[in-house]
Design a protein around this nucleic acid. Sequence first.
DNA 1: CTGTTAGCGCATTCAC
DNA 2: GTGAATGCGCTAACAG
Lengths: 362, 362
Amino acid sequence: MAEPAEPTETAEPAPGTDPSPRRGPVRLAEVAAAAGVSLATASRVLNGSHRSVGEPHRGRVLAAAAELGYRANPHAQAIARGASNIVGLVVHDISDPYFSAIADGVMRQCEQRGLVVVMASTRRDPERELDYVATLRAQRARAVIIVGSRTRSRDLTARLAKELAGFSESGGRVACISQNRLGTHTVLVQNRAGARELARELARLGHRRLAVLTGPPELLTARDRHAGFVEGLRDSGLPDEAVRAVPGPFTRDGGYAAATELVTAGLDVTCVFAVNDVMAVGAMAAFRDHGLAIPQDVSVAGFDDIRTLRDLVPSLTTVGLPLEEMGERAAALALDTEPGERPRTVRVRGEVVLRDSTSRVR
Amino acid sequence: MAEPAEPTETAEPAPGTDPSPRRGPVRLAEVAAAAGVSLATASRVLNGSHRSVGEPHRGRVLAAAAELGYRANPHAQAIARGASNIVGLVVHDISDPYFSAIADGVMRQCEQRGLVVVMASTRRDPERELDYVATLRAQRARAVIIVGSRTRSRDLTARLAKELAGFSESGGRVACISQNRLGTHTVLVQNRAGARELARELARLGHRRLAVLTGPPELLTARDRHAGFVEGLRDSGLPDEAVRAVPGPFTRDGGYAAATELVTAGLDVTCVFAVNDVMAVGAMAAFRDHGLAIPQDVSVAGFDDIRTLRDLVPSLTTVGLPLEEMGERAAALALDTEPGERPRTVRVRGEVVLRDSTSRVR
DNA sequence: CTGTTAGCGCATTCAC
DNA sequence: GTGAATGCGCTAACAG
């Protein structure tokens, strides 16, 4: 039995040296008392950044703290210093692998810095996004990271920008991932360029009649990818009539519905580009359900290169994005930057990955 | 005048009635002053639960608050009332769809109650899990929800249980999802029963020689599913020698590696059960890479029924779990329960879903 | 270097 | 009902 007298399963009433069995966590004052120093001194060694405590004391405080299992109350610290150690992370939908991958990166970065992340999933409701930012502002979050495409709505964007500006003015840092319309630091995804490059590759494979499942018309990311794709086709000498657009939700079901619509209307294209992988998956399912083989009957391409979807069959042609890294960079951007600093933008290129869901047209 | 001169795009220096352009969020005191009432009164109408403020005042406070855009400082509230509005959510890996689906449910539930969720991803490191719980405890989180399998390690489990007990004793609520070895409320997944049922179905299809990719030996969830599977086979009259076990990580790559090992050693089974869908996907990829067709050459089954993986081809036979709902229930369990209450446990059954990745043996 | 003191923003007794 | 006073746990001047 390694683990002999494993202290009894129950609590820890501390032998006999504890005069007041105060419930709840130990406070700094108790540590100070136990170490025989002032509250200030204890605070300095335990939390104050600049060390300036003599060795006789320093050790005693540390020991006492360890013994009592002291943990600073972050709320008290937040209120006393006027700044918390909270980082807010606002995503459109945490159950979407695109966002959870990014979240992973953000959390990694925050953990390293001893920051706590408050996560909010807006479920694609811009109003909720606004509300969460307000909440985070009230929390005196140290930084807020907004992930997800902006919309065309000037109003919504302006309101969010204003809220963020207010937050930022009172010392909070902000970073966004997607477009840089918010006047903040941002990790700018080059959707346009990626889609354009993808289109060229597809044209090179011989496709002359294509369709793009464009996602929601108001989502900038969706629009940019669509626009970039059309540009790429033009670059390749194809007329604008060569491409057909079908809008729909940015989800798997949205992709399914859009593809179905395409088939129902009499599929007259050899290749379909869904503006994100999740939609592409839905589209592939729809085509299959209609007896169409991929890529023999129709080629399909997506965007994002979601890890969980890498093992699809046929493997999905897409534009790869370094999701986790984007999250890390956004966090770093917000955290390593001076409060008043001019907005920086880090560009992230997508890399076209040709796989089996697209084939050369005969 | 419904919002006439929409204050200029910039900050809001308030026309001419504001003597001190104090930076940062407005405080309760300012609202009280603006409304011409005491701080206490303002506090009562804005935050105090039991209303007891006369109508002349009540309205004024509300108006002032709205006008100034007042938002209570949650840290100050936390410290004043000794309890925060934070709910801690600890998962093994947020980028794993199993966890992000559950997280979605938890967040939904918390949002409804106006609670904020602090999320932590341990990246499958038990020590980190312990540490996060301690952090959450220090935060005076209102509740902590631990998601993910426990391990066989008595030591680790005991330490976590102890930490949770301490947290719970000081008024925090706790709920777990997976096993109920922590002495807390728990959403208990009936892994054993689900796997057993799956095994029976597979046996019914005629499989007589099977393998299970067991995942990490120390993970209880993995062991339970493995054990249940073996039981189900026994139920069907198969000898224990009928099933072969291959351990490995609980991930896609773990599944790939385990399946490869199986093939390399000379595949002598007709069906492989990976203890979760993500591993199953890896296994399918491995089989394909070795030229094996699914389900013709080998049937594959998983567990969880991850939504993102529902469109795999061939579609994956698995045991479905109501992930989002599990998250919601865990949150409700923790939040709707009295602090001292006896641990409740909500059982969740998995439902076998036979799809195309498994076929009748000829 | 160390102890004293004054807040941080808010909830809450306690008198009025 | 309403206001004044106290305290929550900790940090940050400010003096010794």
